[in-house]
Design a binder for these strands. Structure first.
Lengths: 116, 116
DNA sequence: GTAAATACATAGTTTTGTGATATATTGTTA
DNA sequence: TAACAATATATCACAAAACTATGTATTTAC
């Protein structure tokens, strides 16, 4: 991630949202899709992704299914029912939060003098 | 903060932006303004604010000026020249990042079947 | 056959916000 | 006037979350 700190708290939401949109996905696929959809600006590292996926699974929001592609294991993830609900909450909260921040940092500059 | 993790990385930008808008401000004033402007949703804690202010000052982006109001010390902060430049970069980066996240989490749902 | 890409995983570190706590002044109100 | 809330700053211990680095192994491309 080039933005480093900024992503905090948004990664799980992004993962949930992609799973909602695409149905089953595996880890590496998620990193590639985020990379592509973000115009190469958001590059999720393995050290961030896998712990995040494991936590979502431990929380019962996603379930994994191991599939062998030749000799290579691939772990596909799907949303659970609670996961689908959590996705909506999570996405809505993030959008609301970003709107609030947007308002905070883009309000008019010094309206005191020279308001057009 | 209710949003907890989400604020990560955005606090310094918010502080810089408020200083850009209002000119000199003191810590407590910043917390109150953020609280008000965010509709009571973003509540900056002292344990977050003061370390953030001290770091910005250590980095030379803001300068403090102690003013006595009666017997109480009040520390006013102002942007330095590098601080003004950093504010622009910081705000622009945050807006761009939020736009990217917005695109990521609001793209159309399953366009494969049933595209209106 | 060697390097790059695919695909998973974890340990240790850093960053950053929170909770708790401390100090002290000022304003309100019972 | 005593008690409490609000104002105002500050720090420490803790937790959460992402990163770096490292490791393993297969598959693909040159």
């Amino acid at each position: 991630m080039n933005h480093t700190e900024l992503l905090k708290g948004t990664l799980s939401t992004i993962i949930l949202r992609l799973l909602e949109e695409k149905g089953r996905m595996y880890g590496y696929e998620i990193t590639q899709m985020v990379k592509e959809k973000s115009g190469e600006t958001i590059l999720i590292k393995e050290g961030s992704l896998y712990p995040a996926l494991h936590k979502l699974e431990a929380d019962g929001l996603i379930v994994s299914e191991e599939v062998f592609i030749g000799k290579r294991v691939r772990k596909y993830y799907n949303l659970t029912k609670p996961g689908k609900k959590a996705t909506r909450t999570s996405v809505d909260e993030l959008l609301a939060f970003m709107q609030t921040i947007h308002n905070l940092i883009t309000s008019e500059l010094n309206p005191a003098h020279g308001a057009a």
